[in-house]
């Protein structure tokens, strides 16, 4: 199984290889796409959680930063970026 975004190391750019659209609600999926999270896109996980929890996750998508929950990140498969 490919590594998933919720366990991807911080500060390392990865490419989205697959998103399990069926596992999330329509609204969730749409909001992800509106944030520019789609297959083939390059993203960088930046910050994860605080003192009490590993949730949420902040990502860089292009020039934008977005916050998602670990649960959603677990539905996103990532692969190393092409060298």
């Amino acid at each position: 199984m490919n590594p998933r975004l919720d366990s991807a190391p911080l500060g390392v750019a990865v490419r989205i290889s697959r998103i399990d659209w069926d596992a999330m609600s329509q609204d969730e999926g749409r909001r992800l796409r509106e944030f520019g999270l789609m297959e083939g896109i390059e993203i960088t996980p930046l910050h994860r959680g605080s003192l009490f929890s590993r949730d949420p996750l902040a990502l860089a998508v292009g020039r934008m930063q977005v916050i998602i929950r670990a649960r959603q990140a677990a539905m996103i498969e990532v692969a190393p970026t092409a060298p």
Binding site: E28, R31, P56, A58, M64, Q65, I67, I68, R69
Partner: peptide
């Protein structure tokens, strides 16, 4: 909980 998605 559908969670927390927002732009920073």
């Amino acid at each position: 909980a559908t969670g927390f998605m927002m732009e920073m």
